[in-house]
Structures are given as structure tokens and as C-alpha cells.
């Protein structure tokens, strides 16, 4: 009989312990850390600028995961369940990685576009300088030549600014500046060509 009672007692303790083990689900702390790291990595890759939409999706999901964790924290200890929060955090990690990849790809594409525009701008500027050296000179051309030199000086100043903003990875800004240089250089080319056509001669080299 005593053995029976002892057995029942042990059984009850084991049942209680087992129930507590099942009911007391663990907070997804590690997964939260991983999600935060993934978000941080996406931001460091420039997602805020180059993949803002995807980053926003990941951040919104992270907010939802936190809400879910808080909600579970507020419930009775035996009924807590962090499975949903955990699943959302898995999605956050995936979304953040997607944002990171998108940012890297987009940045690379913009970088290539910007570098291409800079090469084009430099070529146009060199052409314009050579063209201006061939421009007809003589009485009364000072104002025209000065205007064209002004264009080229402005273009050169803009081109010199490009390195600094390239280092800051502002590729959209680089492209805009390079296009501006090209526009000024093209105008010089056109105007010198018109002057040559008008006077019918090049300056002697």
C-alpha cells in the first residue's frame, strides 16, 4: 500500500514536471538576435537607399514578431507559445537577406551605370578641350571663347567633385554630375563646330 502511495506521488510529480516542461516554451531569443543581425547586415549593405521597400517589409515583420512575443509574455505561463513569433522571425531573416541581396545588386548596377557615365563624360570633356583648341580666334571672338571656356571650367570642377561622391557611394549623384559634364562638353563641341562651319577654317595648330 505504501509502495502504491509512493508510486502515485512520484507519478504526480513526474506529470507536473512534464507538463511544466511542455508548457513553459522558451522565448526565441537567439532567433531574435539572428533577425536583428540580418536587418543590420541589410542596412550596412545600403538597403535603406538601394532596397528601401524590401527593408521596410523585413522591419515591419520584425515589429510584428516583437508584438507577438510581448503578447505571449502577457499570457498565463502554462499557455505561452512562441511558435508564431519564431515563424515570423524566420521570415524576417529571409526578408532581410532578400533586401541585402537586392541592395547589393541594385548598388552594383548603379555603380556600373555611374562609372560608364563618368567615362563618357571624361571622353566628351577631352574632345571638347581639343575642339576648343581648334576654335577660330580673332577680333571679337573673346566673348564666345570665354563663354566656352567657362563651360569647360564648370565641367572640370564638376568632374573633380565626382571622386568624392563616388567614395561616398552616391552613384545616383555621380551619374547626375557626369551627365551634367557631358551636357556642357557637348555644347562646347557643338558651338565650336558651328563656329568652324561659319568661318570655314580651323585655327592653325
Amino acid at each position: 500500500m505504501e509502495n502504491m502511495i509512493q508510486l502515485l506521488k512520484r507519478g504526480a510529480v513526474a506529470l507536473l514536471f512534464g507538463t511544466m516542461l511542455i508548457a513553459c516554451a522558451e522565448k526565441p531569443i537567439q532567433r531574435t538576435d539572428s533577425a536583428l543581425q540580418a536587418l543590420q547586415a541589410a542596412k550596412q549593405a545600403g538597403a535603406a537607399e538601394y532596397a528601401p521597400e524590401s527593408l521596410r517589409v523585413a522591419e515591419d515583420e520584425y515589429q510584428k514578431a516583437q508584438e507577438e512575443i510581448t503578447a505571449q509574455d502577457d499570457t498565463f505561463v502554462m499557455t505561452r507559445n512562441y511558435d508564431v513569433a519564431s515563424a515570423i522571425l524566420v521570415k524576417v531573416i529571409a526578408d532581410a537577406e532578400k533586401a541585402k541581396t537586392e541592395a547589393i545588386t541594385s548598388k552594383q548596377a548603379l555603380k556600373s551605370g555611374a562609372e560608364g557615365a563618368v567615362v563618357l563624360a571624361k571622353t566628351s570633356l577631352e574632345e571638347a578641350k581639343n575642339q576648343l583648341a581648334q576654335a577660330p580666334t580673332g577680333k571679337g571672338t573673346q566673348a564666345d571663347l570665354q563663354a566656352l571656356r567657362g563651360d569647360l571650367q564648370a565641367a572640370e570642377t564638376t568632374l573633380a567633385e565626382i571622386d568624392a561622391i563616388m567614395a561616398m557611394e552616391d552613384y545616383i549623384g555621380v551619374k547626375a554630375k557626369a551627365e551634367s559634364v557631358q551636357a556642357l562638353a557637348s555644347r562646347v563641341n557643338e558651338q565650336v563646330a558651328q563656329a568652324i562651319q561659319k568661318t570655314g577654317k580651323h585655327k592653325k595648330a
Binding site: 567657362g150 564648370a154 554630375k177 551634367s180
Partner: peptide
């Protein structure tokens, strides 16, 4: 002012 005008045009292009 010619350079200033060119600079302005550059900024407007950007």
C-alpha cells in the same frame, strides 16, 4: 559671370 552661368547649368542638369 560666364563660369557662374555654366555652373548653374551644370546644377540644373543634375
Amino acid at each position: 559671370n560666364l563660369r557662374a552661368l555654366s555652373v548653374t547649368e551644370g546644377l540644373l542638369n543634375q
